[in-house]
Design a protein around this nucleic acid. Sequence first.
RNA 1: GGGCGAAUAGCGCAGUUGGUUCAGAGCAUCUGCCUUACAAGCAGAGGGUCGGGGGUUCGAAUCCCUCUUCGCCCACCA
Length: 873
Amino acid sequence: METKYNPTQIEAKWYEYWLQHKFFHSEPDEREPYTIVIPPPNVTGVLHMGHMLNNTIQDILVRRARQEGKNACWVPGTDHASIATEAKVVGKLAQQGIKKTDLTREQFLEHAWDWTREHGGIILKQLRKLGASCDWDRTGFTMDEIRSESVIKVFCDLYNKGLIYRGVRMVNWDPKALTALSDEEVIFKEHHGKLYYLRYKVEGEDRYAVVATTRPETIMGDTAMCINPNNPKTAWLHGKRVIVPLVNRVIPVIEDDYVDMEFGTGCLKVTPAHDVNDYMLGEKYNLPSIDIFNDNGTLSEKAGLYVGLDRFECREQIAKDLQSAGLMEKIEDYTNNVGFSERTNVPIEPKLSMQWFLRMEHLAKIALDPVINDDIRFYPIKYKNTYRHWLENIKDWCISRQLWWGHRIPAYYLPEGGYVVAETPEEALRLAIQKTGNTSLTADDLKQDSDCLDTWFSSWLWPISLFDGIRKPGNKEINYYYPTADLVTGPDIIFFWVARMIMAGYEYEGKMPFRNVYFTGIVRDKLGRKMSKSLGNSPDPLVLIEKFGADGVRMGMMLSAPAGNDILFDESLCEQGRNFNNKIWNCFRLVKGWQVADMQQPDECRQATDWFDAKLRQTSDEMQKLFKNYRLSEALMAIYKLFWDEFSSWYLEMIKPAYGQPVDALTYSRTLNFFDRLLRLLHPFMPFITEELWQNLEERKDGDTIMFQHIDNDALSAEDEQLLVHTEQLKQIIAGIRNIRQQREIPQKEALTLQIVGKPLTSGKELLTKLGNLDAIQYVEQKAPNAASFIAGVTEFAVPLDHFINVDEELQKLQAELKYQEGFLQSVMRKLGNERFVQNAKPEIVAMERKKLADAQSRIAALNESIATLKNN
RNA sequence: GGGCGAAUAGCGCAGUUGGUUCAGAGCAUCUGCCUUACAAGCAGAGGGUCGGGGGUUCGAAUCCCUCUUCGCCCACCA
């Protein structure tokens, strides 16, 4: 065996083995289910660091659940990602000189499916490299048959319940993707722009009313000016009419409290077609609405001026023209928030259009309480507030998108106007005939709505639709796997996805979709910046895996990923993970390299094995508690320290036979047993190396795997506790001896004598002798004059040295220690001298203080004696 | 503008109902070691007025008030 662990081949080998034996596959049975549905990544996406973190956590949870004897099922899949994918396909076609508008819907979809088949599922392949133990037989896609039918069924159901309606509303329009967006898809960013002060001539007078606006290009859509009726500064405009600059249209001055008297000039231009607030004013005062933009953000015929010009070019041009016309009072720098499209990153244009909406009142209501009451638990808990706030202020969900890649809205328009909503064209025809009484209607007469549904309208069904619970309610699978156990996702999609899954869960299953939600942090770089392509600070996960091994990378991710905190990723964390792998590897080499002899177990080995058995159970118990609270990083740290510090540095040194000597059979078998149990505890975090070593620890059969090996948690007895405390004391003494060696440059090979001043050791002599390399342990009343000493617990220990010791130095050390102890004693005495403390504090606290007092006193006595001894010589 | 959260060692963090020598572990740093499993290693060491100020209490990193600084979410001020 190599001295260094080489993961590449080993990882490939075991993943293949797991697949072959279908270890990841789950079928309903009598065991307790443990279900996770993957947050489906974009079908044409590639793995990034966020996925790495997220899926590592899911895999850890799933593997741990398997070891706990649950029927674990992790369902993978992908999302069709309507806008993102359509944009990619449009881009690719553009490269070939093909415009989307030149294609029919069917032709375009063919291209999209080609693209999906070509790139689809790459990301799932990449997940295998990470070790993800998904049930690949169950892989779903939001646009496959089951999921598509489920979406349509739900749409029809909600429509029939009156929760879906169609209407003209002001929506967020993406002029690049040419579609409406939901409020959640709009990201507000600070924008450094200008505030333009425009002069509107008052009709029939030679005066001007000045309006401050950030969007002078929208004046062609102005249909009123608005002032606050209580504003004395603008009162003179009451009842007047003004002339829109350049356009020369006469518009009324209206009055409404909405106008902020402090802002700008107190005059507001009202453009009902292109501003949400203006739209509301327009509705209120029955103003005409002039839509001056085309869908792509250029000026339309209706604008009358600048037709065909882009909205931002128009802004610059109109500013110049206004200036030359003397209609621009001034221009100021101004910073405000502008909404951008989440997907295309272009400024959103508020636009009036006909869209489909889902009423949210009822759904918000059923989704709120379960989270507030902790039926569904959020980790970390702080997201409960965010969730509540959103649900309490929710608005209707715009679910239609002017895209082709997605689930087409099942609404069919009738030749004579009106429409029907149905799951199939046949059913639509039946309904249409029923509705119109026109029996001569044919399918061709009906025109299906050309829009498709928001991607999230399919994602929100994911935990149900993966088990076909929408099409076949109450089927065996949905009954068994639903509700799922844990959802692992980012807080950025708490509204997009988490909240809506909860709504759908209660609406369609009457139950929560998951019991716990683990919100991961965002993976950032070392400097705290988000990882992005443009910054080039995002490492390629597959390159990392190649470099450090999947186990190493997994550990690197987990080392600093407490739930909800952003993680500052640094390659050095993976290095630490790789180093740990190597440590485990070398421990294995050591243990398996021993000769075993049929001989009596030496005392120190008996002590060591008894101790480590207790230590192992202690940590295992601790880990169980940490897992229960989703404190995975801490659970990993616990097993990391157990393996490295306790097992390798202490235990193996305790039992290690002298060079060339064999180990006794009992110690050997117990050590293999420990190794086995350690590997089990490690397995969820580092699946590959643990399988490799577990397979080689003992003779195994084909089909054996560490994946299903249970983790036992036997409680610690009082004796165990005692043993743990006692061994810690021994470790302290050994550290003291090592210190003396280090300070005086005494090699480990040179044996020393240990003097114990005062009370004798109850046990552990053999261990001390071995690890300290002692030739004798003496109990003395007074330490030797030439001894170096230290205190462990309340006892003084000394090591007589042949050579001259520096008395001054030794004295200084002891006196410093004495000073510290006396200071400590003072503080304890002050506390105990305080009557109110003794009266009010809990009795056990007071007792503890008394013990501290006594301990300090004995240490001080020992120190004084030690100092006296030194001085006398 | 509203809400939420955070501030503890050089760094990223833990610190459960206030009370053990409670001021912690990991990484980094420093010192000494190529000691026959591992230098991707071993053995040691240093390092913090718990953001500032005030208060409650016998006792505060922990509870209250206040200030400062960051982060996140929500919001229609042109």
